[in-house]
Nucleic acid binder design. Structure first.
Lengths: 169, 169
DNA sequence: GACAAAAAGTTAGATATCGAATGTTTCGAT
DNA sequence: ATCGAAACATTCGATATCTAACTTTTTGTC
């Protein structure tokens, strides 16, 4: 399956992340939640009253996506949104009692999952692993490769809407 | 952001995979494709005339998802599907000339991306990295943790449709 | 040989995500 | 003081994915 000299790093990374993430989601579903619900609860808990921009950034999703989850979770009674009287542009998000309770339940499931995930992997190997992950992120964010043309001023035609790239493979 | 003793492995893995995958998709889009198109072309190339079940497994997606992509790519003239005369259940997938051409273009982009991704990472570190990835996969696939109750015979009520869990975080 | 079970794909409906456009509210420059 | 720019959030439309149900074709059992 590879016209590459070496097994491609990115593919291996993506496939592993996919199976691990799916397993994690399954564990959370069994505990009565979902992965998006868990990360949302986690972000709200860790910075209560933060605005949605910050929450989304913490989770690693876009604001529009967070809005979607907050709508659902608010409808489920897990959290509330109210406008900040200090700055009426921002919506302050806070957990309800039900939200707090679900957080505790899912936290237990998440801890158990993490424990299982680390089986047989001593801390030093995991530390080295995390360093490589950081290096990969850095290599990708310093894009010294794909800039044959960067978004210049030429070509300002009424360009049609760029389709959303929803990436998961 | 973490009520965990140590930084959770899975979260770090998922976030890294996400940014790397998004960057990869962006590179492929710039080259005139997308990530799903690339992996589909790659799988078809690597085992021409394979059936769709095998292709999907190679890519790591479900058959239904592959059907979706094949429909689009067939409409774009990148590939053809014909029923196997030996076994009329299977659809044999083959690339058209346009499909072959796009494959070559995207292959170049993918190689460039992989090169950039490896910057500063010697082979021995990447080998260790791959071993940890494999261990994580194994830890998750040997689920000795979440089986308080396994899908038993009790509770065979007309259970409502289980919603699709589309996981990406 | 008939017919149920299995195998391969497609279709249907749902969730998660994204980018762009839009709506509100605040800020800043003159 | 006004008015355009920026910040925050939501809405809109699209892509990618999943599970379950369905259709068609083959296989296996009696």
């Amino acid at each position: 399956m590879t016209p590459f000299d070496r097994p491609p790093v990115g593919m291996n990374l993506a496939r592993t992340a996919k199976v691990v993430t799916q397993a994690f989601d399954a564990a959370l579903v069994e505990a009565g939640g979902t992965l998006p619900v868990w990360v949302t609860l986690l972000s709200v808990k860790s910075r209560e009253l933060a605005n949605q921009r910050e929450l989304a950034g913490m989770i690693g999703i876009q604001g529009a996506t967070l809005t979607h989850h907050l709508n659902a979770m608010e409808a489920q009674g897990l959290l509330t949104r109210r406008r900040d009287p200090e700055n009426r542009r921002v919506h302050q998000v806070a957990l309800t009692a039900a939200g707090e309770a679900l957080f505790e339940t899912l936290r237990t499931a998440a801890l158990a999952f993490d424990r299982q995930l680390r089986v047989g992997l001593p801390d030093d190997r995991l530390a080295e692993f995390a360093e490589v992950l950081a290096a990969l992120r850095a290599n990708v964010e310093a894009p010294s490769f794909g800039l044959a043309d960067f978004p210049g001023d030429k070509n300002d035609l009424p360009r049609s809407r760029k389709p959303a790239r929803n990436v998961k493979s």
